[in-house]
Amino acid sequence: MNLRKASAAAAAVLALSLTATACGSDDSDSSSEGEGGGKKITVGIKFDQPGIGLKTPDGSYTGFDVDVATYVAKELGYAEKDITWKETPSADRETALERGDVDFIVASYSITDERKAKVDFAGPYLLAHQDLLIRSDDNIAKGADLNGKKLCSVAGSTSAQNVSDELAPKAQLKEYGTYSECIDALASGAVDALTTDDSILAGYASQDQNKGKFKLAGLSLSNENYGIGVKKGDAKMVDDINAALEKMVTDKAWDKAVTDNFGPAEYKNEPAPKIGNIVS
């Protein structure tokens, strides 16, 4: 009899303990929630593209994509402190979304039919073009002017090959491991031009150490519709992000982000694109 009473008392104590633990767990979860009641959000960006997405030596993040992502996250209910930034190199973007490593990706992510088969896109939020970066005292007015000149791009990129195949078959292609190496080569005269998206080129030209050294040639060699990547099938996230992007344009925060990140390069950007308007 005493044994039964002791067992009953112990069970009651255990039940109370579990109840208290559960309540404590709920309180802990709510303390890590964002402004809109959700938990922290993880956003994929580039860490190595000045003006687009760059992790600085002090651990902060800068760039147009970072500004766009921060604005969107705020509209979704997350303060800047609620954002976890995750590096997503080009080759890993689809996989990161499929695995759920990130909630969305803002990383100079051009919308293509091949990518749309794997992920969904909000936007576009920027229309970029393949262009050339040249020294400020040089003059290249058209693609054919590259014939006989040294053209740089990163290994594995199709940008330089596009120029060689379509515009300047006599250009001498030089491949380096990073755009920073191409910039150094351009500064030293080892190459005559660097090619990739004009937004990326403007970011490099806007760096303090490069101001006044380089300029964009102003050639629109291709259309690159930057979109925000979302996991396939998440229609609500796409709709919510599109609403945030529209508001960013309306309240002029989009224009400010362009000026802040690309202004020193005198980047002649396209107007903010209409949601769903893909320029081929």
Rank of each mutant, 00 (worst) to 15 (best):
C182I: 08
I134E: 04
K81N: 15
V102R: 01
W85F: 12
Y61R: 09
S180A: 15
L76T: 06
Q172H: 03
T84M: 10
K74N: 15
Y176M: 11
P89D: 08
A107H: 08
Q130F: 04
P50E: 12
H129Q: 08
L127M: 03
D101R: 08
L146C: 02
T84N: 14
L54E: 13
W85I: 01
P57V: 11
E87Y: 09
G59W: 15
F104H: 07
S188N: 11
V119S: 01
G100V: 07
L186S: 07
S108F: 03
D145P: 04
G143I: 06
K116Q: 14
Y109S: 13
N139H: 12
T95K: 15
G143A: 05
L132G: 04
E94P: 00
G100Y: 11
Q130P: 00
E87G: 02
S159V: 10
G63D: 08
T95V: 13
D165G: 00
L76S: 05
K55E: 15
S180C: 00
V68E: 07
K116H: 01
A91T: 11
Y61M: 15
A107E: 13
E75V: 00
E114R: 02
R135F: 08
D184T: 10
D131Q: 09
V163A: 05
K81V: 11
S90M: 05
A171K: 01
A171M: 07
T95S: 14
S60H: 04
K118W: 03
T112A: 02
A171Q: 07
A79Y: 06
I134C: 07
G100K: 09
Y109H: 14
E80Y: 06
Y125Q: 11
V163W: 06
L54K: 04
E80A: 15
D58C: 01
A187I: 00
T95I: 12
Q172F: 03
A122T: 06
T88H: 06
P89S: 12
E175W: 09
R135T: 08
Y61S: 12
Y179E: 15
V106A: 15
D92Q: 14
V154T: 15
Y78G: 08
L126D: 04
A160D: 13
G148N: 07
G77P: 06
D165W: 08
T62K: 14
V68K: 00
G123W: 10
T88S: 12
I134Y: 01
G177R: 14
A96W: 10
N162C: 00
A141K: 14
K174P: 00
G177P: 04
K55T: 08
I83L: 04
R93E: 12
A160R: 00
A141V: 09
T88C: 10
